[in-house]
Each structure stands twice: as structure tokens, then as C-alpha cells.
């Protein structure tokens, strides 16, 4: 099986997907949730179906209906309503809470989240910082255990996976919050993990098959580890899908991000990482 020989095809597929994602990112941006922008989210459950108009009427009475978005909740079996508003202070939250409960007897507060603008800014900074520090730590470790070029390419690969995930979220317009950041960081970890297993085999082949050209050493490594790559991604994706479909609405976005990222991660460790090593090698020998 010649995977590395067709590397231009694999690069093109990735570039097209990343390109479309970036285009959407530039035009629409990411749909940042309250964790990033600040705001208030309140979710209530009722024993019967309550319309968004009924809830809006209640909010109108206490004067916060203007900037509020009211939607049915995705959590099944709760007849839920989600109210999204600007950042309310705790007194206003109590007012909303009481108004809803006095209008609807069966109303129960499922969750309330209020995030001030400071926290949102911090989250953005910390997320970038965490990503940066993680990348540096990974480069150091891999340079130490392998060679610098392996490290540099691991970073390109993980950026590839992160960009695809962010891009797909921009395309889908799904709301992103703190768990999305956690998902991205997990993707970073998984992406590296997946890539290293193949790099490990290339390192081994460089010793065992020192007479054959590098492209052959690398291709053998990719093909030999293919069963592992496929089995691992299938078992991981199975669990992610199981949680996505049955784990409830609150972790769905998280699981979707993981699914996209891990899928991209498996693709990139087979079709991007090792081919890039070959391309790097060719450039140097020229």
C-alpha cells in the first residue's frame, strides 16, 4: 500500500477543508457562548409544554424581555425552556426565578449560569495560553525523545486537527463554551498521542531498515501501524458517539468537538504527519 506517494492528494483534502472552515470563520466567526462573552443563562423545566411566548410575557412584566432569547431546551423529557439574557446581577436573577415560579406552579430551576465579562476575557486568554504552553511542552518532549523535525511536524499536525475542529464549528454555527476549550486541549493530546505511535515505528524502521530510502521506511511504518490506528480510532469514536447520542444535551457539544477532532487526528496522523516528514526530508536533500 503506497500512502506516502499520494501525499499531494492528502494535503489537498486537508487544505480544502481547512480553507472552507477559515472562510466561514472569517465571515461568521465562532458562535461564542456566555462563557466567552458574558451573559446569563437560565433553564427551567415544567410538567407541561410551556411556549416561549408565555415565558416572554413573564419577562416583559419584569422588564428584561428586550435583550432576552427564549428557546425550548434540548434536554429531553423536561419540557424545558432556556432563557439567555445579558449579564444580570443576582437580584435580577432572583426576580426572574420568582416570577417564573409564581406564574407556572410546576416550574423548577434546572440550572442558572451567569458569567461576567471579566471571566470571559480570562477564559479566552487562558485557553490560548494553555494551548501555547502545551505546544511548547510537547515540542520539547518530542525533540528530546525523537528529533526536532518530528516535533515541528507534530505541532503542524495538531494545529491541523484544531483548525479543522474550529472550522467545522464555524460552519455548523454551534455555540461554543468552556467545554469546547477542554475538547480542543484533549484533541491536542490525542493528536500527539496518535502521531507518536507512528513516529515511534518510523524511528524503529530507521534503525532496522537503514538501507532503504526514508520514504519507504516511513511508508512501511504507516502501513504496519494501520490496524492499530484504525482499531483505536474506531473504539474511541464508538464511545464518543455513544455519549453523544445517549449522554444528554449538556455534553453533546463537547462530544461533537471531540468526534471531529479525533477523526481529524486519525486522518492527520496517517495522511499528514508522516507525509510531511517525507516532504521535509526531500526539501533538505535538495
Amino acid at each position: 500500500m503506497d500512502i506516502l506517494g499520494k501525499r499531494k492528494i492528502w494535503y489537498t483534502i486537508s487544505l480544502v477543508i481547512i480553507g472552507i472552515g477559515l472562510l466561514f470563520l472569517l465571515i461568521n466567526g465562532l458562535n461564542l457562548g456566555i462563557d466567552f462573552n458574558g451573559g446569563t443563562l437560565m433553564e427551567f423545566s415544567f410538567d407541561h409544554d410551556v411556549t416561549t411566548e408565555q415565558v416572554r410575557a413573564v419577562l416583559q412584566d419584569i422588564g428584561i424581555a428586550e435583550d432576552s432569547k427564549i428557546q425550548h431546551s434540548e434536554e429531553s423529557g423536561t419540557n424545558g425552556i432556556i432563557i439567555r439574557a445579558k449579564t444580570l446581577d443576582s437580584e435580577e436573577i432572583v426576580t426572574v426565578d420568582n416570577a417564573i415560579k409564581s406564574e407556572f406552579d410546576s416550574a423548577e430551576m434546572l440550572r442558572t449560569e451567569m458569567v461576567g465579562p471579566t471571566i470571559g476575557r480570562e477564559l479566552r486568554i487562558n485557553a490560548l495560553l494553555a494551548m501555547l504552553v502545551a505546544s511548547i511542552a510537547i515540542v520539547i518532549y518530542i525533540s528530546f525523545r525523537f528529533e526536532f523535525r518530528f516535533a515541528a511536524i507534530s505541532i503542524i499536525t495538531l494545529m491541523h486537527d484544531v483548525l479543522i475542529t474550529i472550522g467545522v464549528f464555524a460552519i455548523l454555527g454551534r455555540e461554543v463554551n468552556t467545554p469546547f476549550v477542554a475538547a480542543l486541549l484533549t484533541i491536542v493530546g490525542y493528536s500527539i498521542n496518535d502521531t507518536i505511535v507512528i513516529f515511534d515505528r518510523i524511528r524503529e524502521n530507521m534503525k532496522l531498515m537503514h538501507k532503504v530510502p526514508f520514504i519507504k521506511q516511513a511508508n512501511t511504518a504507516v502501513v504496519d501501524t494501520l490496524p492499530r490506528s484504525i482499531n483505536t480510532s474506531i473504539t474511541t469514536l464508538i464511545t464518543i458517539l455513544a455519549i453523544y447520542f445517549f449522554g444528554g444535551a449538556s455534553i453533546q457539544t463537547f462530544m461533537l468537538a471531540l468526534f471531529i477532532g479525533m477523526f481529524a487526528g486519525t486522518y492527520s496522523s496517517i495522511f499528514i504527519a508522516s507525509p510531511l516528514l517525507v516532504t521535509w526530508q526531500e526539501r533538505i536533500s535538495k
Partner: peptide
């Protein structure tokens, strides 16, 4: 600057669902 409150019902739903999903996985 930040509050997150979860009612007992939602917590229960989350635990049940995620355990079921985990076992299925």
C-alpha cells in the same frame, strides 16, 4: 462575577444518562 447553579433534577438526569452512555460505549 460568575455563578453556576444546578438544580438536583438536572444533576440526576446527567448522572443517569452519562452512566448509561458510558456503559453502552
Amino acid at each position: 462575577i460568575e455563578t453556576r447553579t444546578v438544580g438536583p433534577t438536572l444533576g440526576q438526569i446527567s448522572i443517569q444518562k452519562s452512566i448509561r452512555a458510558g456503559l453502552l460505549g
